[in-house]
Simulated scan of single mutants.
Amino acid sequence: MANETTAAREAFGDLAPALADYTDQVLFGDVWQRPGLSPRDRSLITVASLVALYRTNELPFHFRKARENGVTADELIELITHLAFYSGWPTANTALTIARTVIKDSGA
C-alpha cells in the first residue's frame, strides 16, 4: 500500500505521511471494513455526523464516497433535510450547497 496512490496520500501524504498511512490502513482499512455495518450504512452515519458537526472540509469527499457506497442523491438530500431540525438550519444550508456541487459533478 505504501506505493499506492490514495486520496489521503494525495491530500496530505507529502506533509504528514504517517497520518496518510493511518488514514488508509486504520480508518479506511480496519474501521471501514468491520463487518458490523455495511459501507452504505457507514457512509450515512459519517455524512450525518459531518453535517451535524459542521465539518464542511470533509463533506465533498464523504458525499462522493456515500454515492460510491450506494446512497442515492435523494437520500443525501433527505438526510440533510432531516438534520436541519436536529443540527440547525445553517448546517443544513451549507451541506446542501456542497451536496449540490458534488451531485452536479457526478452527473446524478
Rank of each mutant, 00 (worst) to 15 (best):
1 M>D: 04
2 A>F: 14
3 N>R: 13
3 N>K: 13
5 T>Y: 02
5 T>P: 14
5 T>M: 09
7 A>S: 03
8 A>V: 02
11 A>T: 01
11 A>G: 01
12 F>E: 00
12 F>R: 00
13 G>Q: 00
17 P>A: 01
22 Y>I: 08
24 D>F: 11
27 L>Y: 12
27 L>E: 02
27 L>I: 12
33 Q>T: 13
35 P>L: 01
35 P>A: 06
36 G>F: 10
36 G>C: 05
39 P>E: 04
39 P>F: 04
40 R>H: 09
41 D>G: 06
41 D>H: 09
42 R>E: 11
45 I>W: 04
45 I>E: 03
48 A>H: 06
49 S>A: 07
50 L>A: 05
55 R>W: 08
57 N>W: 14
58 E>H: 15
59 L>T: 05
62 H>G: 10
63 F>R: 07
67 R>M: 15
67 R>P: 11
67 R>F: 15
70 G>P: 13
71 V>M: 13
72 T>F: 12
74 D>S: 13
74 D>T: 13
75 E>F: 08
75 E>Q: 15
76 L>P: 09
80 I>M: 10
82 H>D: 13
85 F>Q: 06
86 Y>V: 11
86 Y>A: 09
87 S>H: 03
88 G>M: 09
89 W>V: 10
89 W>S: 05
90 P>V: 03
92 A>Q: 03
96 L>Y: 15
96 L>G: 06
98 I>F: 07
99 A>Q: 05
99 A>L: 10
99 A>V: 03
100 R>C: 01
101 T>F: 07
101 T>G: 07
102 V>E: 07
104 K>E: 14
105 D>M: 08
